[in-house]
Design a protein around this nucleic acid. Structure first.
Lengths: 269, 269
DNA sequence: CGTGCTGTTGAGGACGATCAATGACGGTGG
DNA sequence: CCACCGTCATTGATCGTCCTCAACAGCACG
């Protein structure tokens, strides 16, 4: 990620040289939440201030000055994590461009807890002031509902993760990778590469790195992941969906998933 | 639960003979979400229609007629569950009086999925029409924010459950019981009895009933649960909190938890 | 050209699942 | 009142998935 477009100005995002992919990702996300592209989208985009690049591994700290704002991821991958009792890192969910990383703080600030937002890769982030959110919700109620939906979608992902987390390692990892693949495709990242280390995935599935590695090898052997690279690259989406018994409807992206083969069992029972 | 107070009328809840404990529970819940008791509370309570008693084990079905409404639990215990691939029941969360069981359907109806609301004990339920929610949110924005908070609180519980679900059985069960205890105390149920079967708890912790039983026995041996009854009865809250390393701040009940001994580690790190 | 992180492999051990059987309790109907 | 039945609780034995420890290889980085 070249830092050429980093601007710390407080001017509006769309007036800046924020990468077009970032703007597109945020717009795609908002549209999927029901924001009217013609009327409400632009006013909201104008609230996003580009903050800058955060290096991989650092916490997306909220400085004292920006305590009353929340973070929008513009480029890269972040995660919502916490330390477990034994000092391990647990990853609740990954964030992709267009995601609001800590919108929960707007709704329940007193709950601000031990969770941390970490940059999993180098990240470009923006912020939105709480007061601006409050103002636009009052002015455009549809935006309020869209933000509510954004948090509900996150809850839906938590639920699915919870469901997934008590399944055997192979299915578990396959399912997680399916989700990441779908969410990346939803914002135009369709190269099939999932830019996470095996350790990242281990922390997100609560598997040991060792067993994670064996599981990845198994997925490669089964033809779901590519064998030609150290990176996590999906070789066969169908295979992965099948292994993970992935039913992506919890992600609220009907159009995208129309192209996917999806299990129907649970919905017909 | 005597059916004497069952009224299927559409008159407002507080004008009915809904048990006072139910009204108190709903009111307590709403107040904890930031509803102004003097101004916004009563208008909201008036929207709740008492529906009737559901027997233990049945699904809290939404009839066609009430498709556009959501369920408020008034008495008893319900759960949000799903069938796993192998036919097992998985419980995501329990519901107590005052909880909105499916408010998510109001926000993201298209996501209405394979999840089911089941009565874990006999339940008294009420409903609120979506149109009434929409109306009151428009009129009293504070109610809208409170409902958003309600869904966020649920998400917070999911997150904690996710965190908890990768710990050893003993801690896991102790933590779950702590949560149920706290949530019951919050609505005035302070007898220390948790009206769940070991099978219910097994389904909520993804443990086998056999191992669940051994864990319960261990908790009894450790003095956390009472040995004098078949029921799950807490003998020592302190012991249970200690074993489960329970930090209840994710529940958003600061006043209640002031009496609890709570771990501070994660918050100071 | 080391230094650190990530990926990879082997061996042993633990936690919890599974199978199977029995006991205890509550409700139902004769 | 008692016999019956279903659900829940309890116990023992075996087995499997995944963790842990330990060591090493490969790649990226300064």
């Amino acid at each position: 990620m070249k830092p050429s477009f980093i601007v710390r100005s407080w001017a509006a995002m769309i007036e800046l040289e924020a990468p077009s992919t970032a703007v597109a990702a945020v717009a795609a996300k908002l549209r999927s939440l029901g924001i009217d592209a013609g009327r409400d989208l632009e006013p909201f985009l104008r609230l996003i201030k580009v903050k800058g690049v955060m290096r991989r591994g650092v916490e997306l700290v909220r400085t004292e000055a920006s305590k009353n704002s929340c973070i929008v991821l513009l480029e890269g991958v972040a995660c919502w994590s916490r330390r477990t009792d034994d000092g391990r890192r647990q990853i609740f969910a990954f964030h992709y461009p267009g995601d609001f990383c800590d919108l929960n703080r707007y709704v329940l600030p007193q709950l601000a807890n031990s969770a941390r937002i970490l940059a999993v890769t180098d990240c470009l982030i923006g912020t939105v002031q709480f007061e601006h959110i409050e103002e636009i919700i009052g002015r455009l109620p549809a935006v309020g509902l869209a933000l509510w939906r954004a948090t509900m979608l996150e809850a839906s992902i938590f639920r699915e993760t919870l469901h997934n987390s008590h399944r055997p390692a192979l299915e578990r990892v396959a399912h997680l990778l399916c989700e990441q693949l779908a969410r990346r495709e939803a914002i135009g990242l369709s190269d099939g590469i999932i830019p996470l280390t095996q350790i990242d995935i281990a922390d997100a599935t609560a598997l040991s790195p060792v067993h994670m590695n064996r599981t990845v090898q198994e997925l490669r052997k089964l033809g779901a992941l590519s064998r030609n690279t150290r990176a996590i690259k999906v070789a066969s989406r169908e295979r992965l969906v099948e292994i993970g018994r992935f039913d992506g409807r919890y992600l609220n992206m009907p159009k995208l998933l129309a192209n996917w083969k999806i299990r129907l069992d649970a919905w017909l029972a």
